[in-house]
């Protein structure tokens, strides 16, 4: 019997190694796998590369992980937030590396990793400093920039519903990066608000098929709040 559900946070976090690249879903406060990020803080892996849209807010979650000196490099599109104090302090002090990636390119690079596409061309960033040092190619009169797949060792994802095969649904704008991150990593760990019996999720309504998921932890925390 396949059962991807795990009972404890320690089981969910098992095997995340120092130096791992961790893809983190969420946009704003919605769809953020906050419990899993706290679990990673507790678990202790360090020298991490984090790929997420933002670089953390306040002193909790990703910001806390960075504040503890556990993140070597952050790959994101928008390091600013309502309260980016931790990231900005570390960045000014030269204690964290930053790789800025246009938001669509970030999603496309992770999707490419999940889809077996090592390299692709995009018009985004052509003629800007984002293209510096990258291969460009003219196709039908337009200039495109080569971008590479961004592979995760681990993905942290928040879902609305999950079953023991790892089939997932997401809620409203909580979907955002979550299905993309789920595809792009070798080990995808999900926190889900609801656990459904196998077959209970209508197959037509599955957003992320279980093949992209390795572990599911039940975290019924309720509604997101604050940004």
């Amino acid at each position: 019997m396949i059962d991807k559900t795990v009972r404890t946070m320690a089981e969910a976090m098992e095997g995340i190694a120092d130096g791992a690249t961790v893809l983190v879903g969420g946009f704003g406060a919605v769809g953020q796998p906050n419990a899993l990020i706290d679990g990673l803080i507790e678990q202790g892996a360090k020298d991490l590369v984090i790929a997420a849209n933002n670089a953390g807010v306040g002193h909790t979650g990703l910001a806390r992980l960075m504040e503890l000196g556990r993140v070597r490099r952050i790959i994101c599109s928008f390091p600013r937030s309502s309260d980016p104090v931790v990231f900005e302090t570390l960045y000014r002090a030269g204690k964290i590396e930053l790789e800025i990636v246009p938001q669509g390119t970030l999603a496309a690079r992770i999707h490419a990793a999940g889809a077996g596409i090592p390299l692709f061309f995009t018009a985004t960033g052509a003629g800007t400093k984002m293209a510096m040092g990258k291969e460009t190619r003219e196709i039908d009169g337009r200039t495109y920039v080569a971008e590479t797949a961004l592979h995760g060792d681990v993905a942290l994802v928040e879902a609305w519903e999950a079953d023991r095969w790892g089939n997932l649904t997401f809620r409203r704008s909580g979907r955002n990066f979550n299905p993309v991150m789920a595809m792009g990593a070798k080990l995808t760990i999900v926190q889900s608000q609801h656990i459904r019996a196998l077959g209970e999720i209508d197959p037509d309504h599955v957003h992320t098929p279980g093949i992209f998921v390795n572990r599911v932890l039940h975290v019924p925390y309720g509604d997101p709040s604050g940004f």
Binding site: F78, P79, E88, Y91, L98, I100, T105, M130
Partner: peptide
């Protein structure tokens, strides 16, 4: 050019796409 931590978000995708 030396912006400490510029935030591009989706602007480049939108402008080009």
């Amino acid at each position: 050019e030396n912006d400490t931590a510029p935030a591009v978000g989706g602007a480049m995708d939108l402008a080009a796409g």
